[in-house]
Amino acid sequence: MSKAIMSNNIQGSKQLFGTSLCVAITLFAGSSIAASEQIAKLNSWRFYPDTKKLEITLSSGKTPQYFYLNEPPRLVVDIPDTQLGKVSTQQKYTGSVQRVRVSQMSANVTRIVLDLAPGSAVDSEKVQLQPVSRKNTTRWVLRPTIVKVAAKPNNPQPTNVNYLQLPSTLAPMTGMQPFVSVPPLNSNNQAPQASNFNNTNSSTSPVPTLRNYPVIEFGQPLPKSR
């Protein structure tokens, strides 16, 4: 083989290697650019306490999703293929929505949480999450309907219960003596006979009649004893 032919082969190999390297670099760069274009950024968010409206602005069009959790009550919005931009991650409010939290839930999911006040809930049939316009899917508006709910009692009482039919929790009392009826004094000023608690016959002597003593007014001398 001549030197000219060998030189041509070497130059051809170099050109082929260079072309393949350029194609590989171009494909890698193109795939990286495509991947970066698929990931949007959360550029801004804003919550209006008066109207309970949440506005979301993204760098490219994505479709958020929401769901509701009731213990504790909160409304969650997940934005797929999105990463956090330079935004505030927490803000407190007064009213039915007490706080809004923003975080990077996973590598490509951004989450926004609306923490509700105790005694509040979201009417699942009256929640709107839609873009500002059909042609502009980078701006979204969330409009939830928040209602008041009755607080659950800590110790609810059973209903339809007749407490008179419940068994007594007290032990029966034993050793009690029967009640004794005492008749009034008779005309002879005699005291009634004592009753026997054991219901047995017993003989008692009559009480002697009391003597009539004179009535002495206050300040008068006592009579002399006989």
Rank of each mutant, 00 (worst) to 15 (best):
residue 1 M to R: 13
residue 2 S to E: 14
residue 2 S to Q: 07
residue 3 K to G: 09
residue 3 K to P: 06
residue 5 I to Y: 10
residue 5 I to N: 10
residue 8 N to V: 13
residue 10 I to V: 13
residue 16 L to N: 15
residue 17 F to A: 15
residue 17 F to W: 04
residue 18 G to F: 08
residue 26 T to F: 07
residue 28 F to D: 02
residue 28 F to G: 07
residue 31 S to V: 08
residue 31 S to R: 02
residue 31 S to Q: 05
residue 32 S to N: 06
residue 32 S to M: 08
residue 35 A to S: 15
residue 39 I to F: 03
residue 41 K to I: 04
residue 41 K to W: 06
residue 42 L to F: 12
residue 43 N to L: 12
residue 44 S to G: 01
residue 52 K to Q: 10
residue 54 L to E: 03
residue 55 E to F: 08
residue 57 T to D: 05
residue 62 K to D: 03
residue 62 K to A: 12
residue 63 T to P: 00
residue 65 Q to A: 11
residue 65 Q to R: 13
residue 71 E to R: 08
residue 72 P to N: 10
residue 75 L to R: 04
residue 77 V to Q: 02
residue 79 I to F: 07
residue 81 D to N: 15
residue 84 L to T: 05
residue 84 L to D: 10
residue 84 L to W: 05
residue 88 S to D: 14
residue 88 S to Y: 09
residue 91 Q to P: 04
residue 93 Y to S: 06
residue 95 G to H: 07
residue 96 S to D: 11
residue 98 Q to E: 15
residue 110 T to P: 03
residue 111 R to D: 00
residue 111 R to P: 00
residue 112 I to D: 04
residue 115 D to Q: 14
residue 115 D to N: 11
residue 115 D to Y: 10
residue 121 A to L: 00
residue 121 A to G: 04
residue 122 V to C: 00
residue 122 V to D: 01
residue 122 V to L: 05
residue 123 D to F: 00
residue 125 E to Q: 00
residue 130 Q to S: 13
residue 133 S to R: 12
residue 135 K to Q: 11
residue 141 V to F: 04
residue 143 R to K: 11
residue 143 R to A: 05
residue 144 P to M: 01
residue 146 I to V: 10
residue 150 A to P: 06
residue 152 K to H: 07
residue 153 P to V: 09
residue 153 P to M: 02
residue 154 N to C: 08
residue 156 P to D: 02
residue 160 N to S: 14
residue 160 N to K: 10
residue 163 Y to G: 01
residue 164 L to F: 12
residue 164 L to G: 09
residue 171 A to M: 10
residue 171 A to C: 08
residue 172 P to G: 06
residue 173 M to H: 07
residue 175 G to E: 03
residue 176 M to N: 12
residue 177 Q to H: 13
residue 180 V to I: 07
residue 182 V to D: 06
residue 184 P to V: 07
residue 185 L to E: 01
residue 186 N to C: 11
residue 186 N to P: 03
residue 187 S to H: 14
residue 188 N to G: 04
residue 189 N to C: 13
residue 189 N to R: 13
residue 193 Q to A: 13
residue 195 S to M: 08
residue 196 N to Q: 08
residue 197 F to D: 08
residue 197 F to C: 03
residue 197 F to I: 15
residue 202 S to P: 00
residue 209 T to S: 11
residue 209 T to Y: 10
residue 215 V to W: 10
residue 219 G to R: 00
residue 220 Q to G: 03
residue 220 Q to A: 09
residue 226 R to Y: 03
